[in-house]
Design a protein around this nucleic acid. Structure first.
Lengths: 340, 340
DNA sequence: GCGAATCGTCGATGCGTATCGACGATGGTC
DNA sequence: GACCATCGTCGATACGCATCGACGATTCGC
């Protein structure tokens, strides 16, 4: 492997000159620059990351803490991971994976060994042993998700409250007067995951504002529970029933349950779920969705941390950014107002 | 951040002694070791990764090249990623993400800058511009998947041929004489992805060996195509029909198609798919599966590369390891032979 | 045509660790 | 008790780059 010293010799300049050509931190004459660049090209020189990190105290690596796999949300996690990695490259950074099972010690390790300059924590919920640690680490940390106590932390997440509001307002506008929200799976609800409360709060706010009834019914991965919820909703609704089912598994079961009751989404009943546009289009009846835009959340998370890194302002930061959600009407809801 | 020099001063020894305590590469008296360890503890010293890499020429980081996201296989990709990251930690290594969209240049970059000591390439299929590059990089590379020309490369993958054989043999043993294999999606088949051929080869081999008929029918994400395939299979089968549907999306459509024809898997018809045990159990009728064991493949990939790294034998290596698949009979196949 | 400001380049140094040769202290041998 | 091997520790150096101060060469103003 050639070093910058080799390049310097080949170009007939000092090693420091090579460094300045690369960094642009001092003016270099056109002539010298050409010579150096030619030598770099010819030797296929690439700077050594370790040496660079040692001298500059910057690794240009961001640690990404991925959640322990609950088997079902893996696809959505991968979307975050993929976009984060790609976006980081646009800022000339790389992504180092840290698995959640390393816990708070993992954070201390990668920061303490100076393997990375900052951290992104995915899927932060409620309480978390890593949060107090994150606050005291002297590197930028960005959370995707909002913990119960976000003080002293930089957070970004989809605007779940807006999502809840949008769903209810649009269903109300389509003529529904009773709207049933099928909960996430009980494990999620019981953890009192922040985003569930925010979503539910949004639906209730909108219900009050536009004068419709919103009822929350138990969901889960269990077909009997959901079937019971559906039947209860059907019994209590006088007009055309409307369902909001944020969870993908719940959507599957809801779809089959409605079919077995002889109800067709978009005709006898409205259904809105949360899903990516691609998945929504693949459904037998394309699903009207509230898109939580994981890609956009990921991009912004990377942008935020890279800004923090470039200004490397030491002190603790605190901010909270919510990414607007997008509602798209497809075939599973009654016509007005149909967009997209 | 404390350095090994700080630790040395606190312990009253030389910096090199601290290094030897940590590495164990020279004998250290019990007394000195205690002093040094106490100082490390007290200062919460952690060695600087950059300096370590510079001096030792080892980063203890493995680059993981993840495929560009085709949206549907994201969940299975995440399973690989997660297990690889966790396993790497067991060998005291970290994982750096490299996205496929960086292409061959990405490989040159991370290796040339010496950001990582070796690479794992995921989901390698047929031809790939990165393969010739991988062969010339002077670091260990392990492929998950088998390219058309595996010469000079270290590969590991599930044993798709064995998978095909197992499916056919077990269905034959259960009394089926005609077995229909529903293809993967056409984009996959057209790429002439290696594993498809291997799987199909396995089914044909077993068919010949046990004297049953295996027919291959078009699959895809398209319900009409699959429905047509199913009807064709039903028409051509005299005994109890049997289906093998490796692809998850195909399974979904197959399930509904059979239901609409009034056929119940495990009673009127046998169905074997490829899926994780967890997902298989979640089905309305638990699916008999051929498990391709992505976790095991991942673990072995990490193990292989870590062995190559520890022996750092320079020359190009070549090997091919196939991970045995596991067939598990659940409710979707006829009784004999039912296991698990 | 002289001093001052500017520009472009160089040499030296430091970043924190691993590793090599050296050397004092110990223990054993005859 | 003189000699040698072994053990444990130290000091020095190298790893490859970034960065700082210095300095010769220009350029400009007057």
């Amino acid at each position: 492997m050639p070093t910058s010293k080799d390049v310097a010799e080949a170009a007939g300049v000092a090693q420091s000159t090579v460094s300045y050509v690369l960094s642009g931190k001092r003016p270099i004459s056109e002539k010298t620059r050409k010579k150096v660049e030619a030598a770099i090209e010819q030797l296929t020189y690439q700077p050594n990351a370790g040496a660079r990190a040692l001298a500059s105290r910057k690794t240009r690596v961001i640690g990404l803490v991925i959640p322990f796999i609950p088997e079902l949300h893996m696809a959505s996690i991968m979307e975050f991971v993929s976009v984060i990695a790609t976006t980081a490259r646009q800022y000339d950074h790389d992504i180092l994976l840290v698995t959640e099972d390393e816990g708070a010690a993992g954070l201390r390790r990668v920061v303490g060994q100076q393997i990375c300059d900052g951290l992104i924590l995915m899927q932060v919920e409620g309480e978390d042993e890593r949060l107090p640690v994150a606050r005291t680490l002297n590197v930028p940390v960005v959370l995707i998700g909002i913990p119960r106590d976000p003080s002293g932390l930089v957070c970004i997440d989809a605007d779940f409250e807006m999502a809840g509001e949008q769903c209810v307002r649009d269903l109300a506008a389509a003529g529904h007067s009773v709207i049933s929200v099928i909960d996430w799976q009980p494990e999620v609800v019981d953890r009192h995951v922040n985003y569930v409360d925010r979503f539910m709060g949004g639906t209730d706010t909108a219900a009050r504002a536009v004068g419709v009834t919103v009822q929350h019914l138990p969901g889960g991965a269990d077909r009997e529970t959901i079937a019971a919820s559906v039947d209860k909703a059907l019994a209590q609704t006088t007009g055309v029933p409307a369902f909001i089912a944020p969870d993908g598994t719940v959507q599957d079961i809801l779809r089959r349950t409605l079919a077995s009751r002889g109800l067709t989404p978009g005709v006898d009943v409205s259904v809105i779920g949360s899903a990516s546009p691609t998945l929504a289009e693949l459904q037998p009846i394309p699903l009207s969705t509230i898109d939580l835009r994981p890609g956009e959340v990921s991009r912004r998370a990377v942008k935020i941390i890279c800004q923090l890194l470039s200004t490397d302002s030491q002190g603790p930061h605190e901010s909270l950014e919510l990414v607007p959600t997008v509602i798209t009407h497809r075939a599973s809801t009654l016509c007005p107002p149909r967009t997209a």
